[in-house]
């Protein structure tokens, strides 16, 4: 098999943008069945299809690029570990989003209480060789605005407005009462509106 790292470099689709392309693509159910049979290519396609969503959910909740990478990666690793027990009749994307969101919330909570090692003497290494990315385009302002929200509010807002889930779907994914979802959503959006008022009018 070709190096997947190369093929991964292809553009990762944003959720909701590639519906027409998806028509011609094998369904998640088909890919999961193939991956369970041992077809790594199927797993790779599944990964490519859902990486972007998992990463962005984690990024917007943790507001930390390295943590987002770790969280999204762990979500996929956890999914792979339970591939054989996965019910193919259930949708894959909400399951993965739930794992990523919950892990990201845990990470964000832990950051607040964790006593971390001081490492001022040593610089942080580049993530991969010299490919230190340039300053991102517009994400930093958005991430800064999300700081005004609790991790739980961020998760609900992200699932609603990034992944386009309904409040009912969010409640099911996060195992929360629907009223809790609605209240977190409203409070989170109010806080975001205050932070982004000038920018978004």
């Amino acid at each position: 098999m070709a190096l997947v790292s190369d093929t991964i470099a292809a553009v990762l689709p944003l959720p909701g943008r590639d519906r027409r392309e998806e028509v011609a693509q094998p369904s998640d159910r088909t890919l999961i069945a193939a991956a369970r049979r041992g077809e790594e290519v199927a797993l790779e396609r599944l990964f490519r299809r859902h990486w972007g969503a998992a990463y962005r959910v984690a990024l917007l909740i943790t507001r930390d690029h390295a943590a987002a990478e770790d969280v999204a990666q762990e979500a996929f690793v956890a999914a792979v570990g339970r591939l054989d027990r996965f019910d193919r009749r259930r949708p894959f994307a909400p399951w993965l989003a739930r794992i990523a969101a919950n892990r990201a919330i845990d990470w964000a909570r832990a950051r607040g209480v964790r006593r971390e090692v001081d490492a001022t003497a040593a610089p942080e290494p580049a993530a991969q060789g010299s490919e230190r990315p340039r300053e991102p385009a517009c994400s930093e302002e958005l991430l800064a605005a999300f700081a005004a929200l609790t991790p739980e509010q961020r998760a609900v807002v992200v699932l609603r407005h990034l992944l386009d889930y309904s409040p009912g779907e969010i409640a099911a994914a996060l195992e929360l009462p629907r009223g809790t979802v609605n209240s977190r959503l409203r409070r989170g959006l109010d806080a975001l509106a205050r932070e982004l008022r000038e920018e978004m009018g």
């Binding site: 470099a9 990486w51 990463y55 962005r56 990478e69 999204a72 490919e131």
Partner: peptide, 13 residues
Amino acid sequence: LDDEREQAAAARA
């Protein structure tokens, strides 16, 4: 939301 780190992270992940 456009973050070019996302793709490098995908390769590593």
